[in-house]
Design a protein around this nucleic acid. Structure first.
Length: 290
DNA sequence: CAAGTGCCTTTATC
DNA sequence: AGATAAAGGCACT
């Protein structure tokens, strides 16, 4: 199936799939392969054209966030030279609307890991616990279901390189199964209510909750703060903070609760209602060069 | 080459 | 409330 994107729909498939919001897409030659529920989705972009198999057009539109008005987003967040440079470099990067369960597990696993390691963990998990799907002679694996991971032992989960995260995943899966938790209902709830509910799960703090709210539930109010955003703040927005605060950021290894709140508040105030798009471009920019 | 550092953090404990 | 240590393991320097 093919879609011709109008000029107003700025989109860059590579940027969108490589920027650390999703971890299981694979590029082989010109095609990207992803698993959506129990089907393999194949997609490629040539200029303004998207060509794909394995999903419907409405699904593609929703999943890749093609309804977000990027020209308007760029107008609103383009407050300074640095963010405008980042926008130019990653033009067409969009926020995905992924499956909430996979997204939740992905970001529980993501804590204190780099992207390569996260990809390995999720690949191991899927190989071991996800159903196999054959497509064009390749073997793909669906993401493990809630029941499967709830039934797995913590020791076996650890063998997928999850480390101490194995316990978080196990407890979260069990809790979801026991309470028959409905992810779909979260989409209808407000940001604060949805965040509060996500924070009840083991291994989910404010950063992980924000990532799930953002990358799977379409809550663009979220503004995840991590070490890369911290670096962007230190390197490009230091004049917006006191010297003392910047020194504290430089001295501490991680990010304290209060610093998270402060950077989160700054981002949302400064960049406005589409702040999270600024966050994603700053993140991508910071990771690519520093 | 060994040892240190860092990784899209959370939790337990003070 | 707010700071701090501990929690895999691997890649990189």
């Amino acid at each position: 199936m093919k879609i011709l994107l109008p000029d107003s729909v700025i989109f860059n498939l590579d940027c969108t799939l490589c920027c650390g919001q999703t971890f299981r897409w694979e590029k082989r030659a010109v095609w990207w392969y992803g698993i959506v529920r129990d089907r393999v989705l194949r997609i490629r972009q040539t200029g303004n054209q998207l060509e794909f198999e394995g999903a419907s057009e409405p699904f593609i539109t929703t999943y890749f966030g093609l309804n977000d008005d990027l020209p308007r987003v760029y107008r609103e967040i383009g407050k300074d030279e640095h963010i405008r440079t980042a926008i130019e470099a990653f033009r067409g990067l969009r926020i995905l609307r992924q499956d909430p369960w996979e997204c939740l597990v992905s970001f529980i696993c993501a804590s204190y890991k780099n992207i390569a390691a996260i990809r390995r963990m999720l690949h191991e998990l899927s190989m071991k616990y996800g159903g196999q799907i054959r497509f064009e002679g390749y073997a793909f694996h669906a993401f493990p279901t809630i029941d499967t991971l709830a039934g797995a032992t913590v020791e076996d989960l650890r063998k997928c390189d999850l480390g101490y995260r194995a316990d978080y995943v196990s407890r979260t899966a069990k809790k979801i199964r026991e309470t028959d938790y409905d992810f779909e209902s979260l989409k209808k709830k407000g940001y604060s209510q949805a965040k509060e509910e996500l924070l009840q799960f083991s291994g989910v703090g404010k950063k992980v909750a924000d990532c799930v709210l953002l990358f799977s539930l379409g809550k663009l109010e979220a503004f995840p703060v991590d070490v890369w955003i911290k670096r962007a703040a230190m390197g490009h927005y230091s004049s917006r903070f006191s010297e003392e605060f910047i020194r504290r950021l430089q001295d501490e290894k991680g990010l304290s609760d209060t610093d998270y709140e402060k950077l989160n508040y700054f981002g949302r105030q400064y960049f406005g209602s589409f702040a999270v798009y600024a966050q994603e471009y700053l993140y991508a920019c910071e990771r690519s060069q520093g």
